[in-house]
Nucleic acid binder design. Structure first.
Lengths: 239, 239
DNA sequence: ACCTGAACACCGTTCAAGT
DNA sequence: ACCTGAACACCGTTCAAGT
């Protein structure tokens, strides 16, 4: 029997299963949608049921994949001001997750946060508390930061609404959604200007948009902190 | 032949298919995960393939369901200041979507935004432009608002990490994630105080968290607008 | 201990046929 | 025009059996 037919030195463990699953989702266009227990087993040269010795079911496989990826987030930097430290850690999370485009969707779809995700959230709250924010404000700040905490935002808006260069279709879209068209044209103009060297730039740059939103939120939270904001006070003010 | 066996007055049209699918996802605990073409057909007293005359495939069915729901968002109020108008429209989107808990996940999972979603985004940009914001700032503001534009945020953080009242488990979780535990305890305390009438309240109230984040973002964007922010200037400042 | 074979209860979708 | 029956190529998972 040749090596490829059945002999296997390393008898398949949880780590190897998760690593193969992550590699598969990274490689395939469909990400985890293209991943099935059967195809993963085939990739490992094993019958599907063999996987169930190392992973309880598909959901646990997905949770394990998430933890593998989220475990790669750098530990928070010590010493910086809280805003800088949170900013750095969130950008580190973004770097870790951008290598695995399927991860954000899986994290959101799982019924409960995984241990590595909880660890990351706990670390960010720790940075806010170390910066002097009350547990109350830290709590609401975490809500405001939301999905951005893990380095992703829903790409709802800049998912190109067709990727259609057909000028006829584009014109019809522009007629129906004039404000979207104007904003898109502005971004395109700024980008072209940047290429010509006639302006510093603009356009729709993922990283820039991410940092813009992150900074609006961090600045707003800092302002509340300095003003002595409390949720009790905020509720009282509304009444 | 009895009515229940085969005779059907209304011969099944797209609208009836979509309405039945929405009703099914609303009723079932699993939402759209529990929805299959076969079960939907059974519900309509029809063989599965009959659906394919009214809907190209399952993805188009899901897109149609989203448009049915998003179409229920109220039109923007006229006359108010831009911040108030955007706030109102986003809260209206939230009200429309909260009746269909499966909708946010489906909207994010679809490969392209549906017409009704594009219409909503276009309307919000229109409000920002009417308020005097540049197309440039409006563009970045839309990114900052992100998923909140449709009235939802990922419930990553307050998805109770086990819904476990077992005190042993809770103690172990608190030991591993001390900052999460502290924040949770603060929220619980504030809530209890609110019930006792000894304080105005706090706790983890979905609606309050949503408005908190929304207002941090809107206030930050207004501040940039009043300060004459441009993306070109922001990029230049970094260099 | 770890892996296998056969089977169960599902999927979405195509195609040729019915009325 | 609208619906059907039978079939195809998949799923995740269980169970009893093998080594």
């Amino acid at each position: 029997m040749s090596e490829s037919e059945g002999v296997r030195r390393t008898p398949l463990n949880r780590e190897r299963v998760l690593a193969a699953a992550v590699a598969f989702a990274d490689r395939e266009a469909g990400g985890t949608d293209a991943l099935s227990m059967r195809k993963l087993a085939q990739e490992l040269g094993v019958v599907p049921m063999a996987l169930y010795k190392h992973v309880a079911n598909k959901e646990e496989l997905l949770a394990g994949m998430v933890d593998t990826v989220v475990g790669g987030i750098d530990p928070p930097a010590a010493g910086a001001d809280w805003k800088g430290a949170v900013r750095e850690r969130v950008l580190s999370a973004r770097r870790a997750l951008r290598r695995h485009p399927w991860a954000p969707r899986v994290i959101e779809a799982l019924p409960a946060p995984t241990p590595a995700v909880l660890g990351h959230l706990d670390a960010v709250i720790g940075l806010l508390r170390a910066g002097g924010l009350s547990a109350d404000l830290a709590h609401h700040a975490m809500h405001a930061l939301g999905g951005r905490l893990l380095g992703f935002t829903q790409e709802l808006f800049d998912a190109s609404p067709e990727a259609a260069p057909d000028p006829g279709v584009a014109a019809r879209l522009a007629a129906r959604y004039p404000h979207i068209a104007e904003v898109a044209a502005t971004a395109a103009h700024a980008e072209r200007a940047a290429e010509d060297g006639t302006a510093v730039g603009g356009g729709c740059d993922d990283q820039f948009e991410f940092e813009f939103a992150l900074d609006v939120l961090l600045d707003g939270i800092e302002r509340l902190h300095l003003a002595g904001w409390t949720s009790t006070g905020a509720r009282r003010a509304v009444q």
